[in-house]
Simulated assay, not measured.
Amino acid sequence: AVDVLLNNIRSIERAEEFAFRVEEDVVWSQVAKAQLREGLVSEAIESFIRADDAAHFLDVIRAAEEANVYNDLVKYLLMVRQKAREPKVDGELIFAYAKIDRLSDIEEFILMP
């Protein structure tokens, strides 16, 4: 159903409403990818978090940096870190903390094992 809403009807809003109704990770993931393609970066990050989907972290990082939405990126990267230990994620998390002037969080992050 979400494929029809996104690909045939081309309505991200209706697909998002559907995702809220069914609350399935795979649906939220598809909505998130569509939102990211349309440049709705903050909304896409929120949808990826709802989907618990860490697979597209490189695309999310790139889009968030272009859109300058580092607060949202931090939330997403913290979720990704729970799923995968990628050096790229750790580096981007530190960078995002620096961009939003959360220096104490950088210090805490570096001191973690």
Rank of each mutant, 00 (worst) to 15 (best):
Y76K: 06
V69N: 12
N68W: 00
D90V: 01
V69Q: 03
A64P: 06
N8L: 10
F109M: 11
I106C: 07
I12P: 07
D53S: 05
I106T: 03
A55F: 01
E38C: 12
D52P: 07
G39Y: 02
H56E: 15
P87C: 11
L58E: 15
E108Y: 10
E108R: 10
V60I: 11
L77E: 11
E86I: 14
K83F: 11
V26R: 05
V89M: 13
A63C: 01
I110F: 15
D105F: 02
R102P: 02
I100P: 03
E65P: 09
F20P: 00
E86S: 14
R21V: 08
D53M: 06
E16N: 07
D52W: 10
A55N: 12
G39N: 07
I61M: 09
Y76V: 01
V27S: 07
I45M: 09
L58R: 15
R85D: 15
R14M: 14
Y76G: 00
L40G: 05
L58V: 06
E107I: 10
A15P: 11
F20R: 15
Q35F: 08
A64D: 10
S11Y: 08
V4S: 15
Q35K: 09
L73G: 01
D3F: 03
E23H: 04
E65Q: 12
L78K: 14
A67T: 04
V89E: 14
S29R: 01
K99D: 06
P113C: 09
N71H: 12
W28F: 13
N71L: 04
A96F: 00
Y70R: 14
M112V: 13
D53A: 10
E38K: 07
A84M: 14
A34S: 13
V74Q: 06
N71F: 08
A84Y: 10
A32T: 05
N68H: 08
Y70G: 07
A15S: 00
V74W: 04
F57N: 11
V26E: 13
D72F: 00
R81I: 10
A98H: 14
I94L: 13
R62E: 10
K33H: 03
Q82A: 11
L103M: 13
L5K: 05
E16G: 03
D59M: 09
A15L: 07
A32S: 01
P87Q: 04
Q82E: 13
F109E: 04
F48G: 01
H56M: 03
K83C: 01
E24H: 09
V41R: 00
V74E: 09
A54K: 04
V26C: 05
R102C: 02
D105C: 00
K99T: 11
E43S: 14
A84H: 09
V2D: 06
D72N: 12
V74S: 02
Q82R: 14
Y70Q: 11
L58P: 04
A51L: 08
E17Q: 14
N8H: 12
F57K: 13
E38I: 04
V80P: 07
D59Q: 12
A63E: 01
R14A: 06
I45V: 12
V4A: 15
F57G: 02
D72L: 00
I12Y: 13
E86V: 15
F20H: 15
I12M: 11
F95I: 07
F95K: 15
L111V: 12
V60Q: 02
E46Q: 02
L78W: 03
V80Y: 00
A55R: 14
I94H: 05
R50Q: 14
N71C: 00
L73R: 03
E43K: 12
M79F: 03
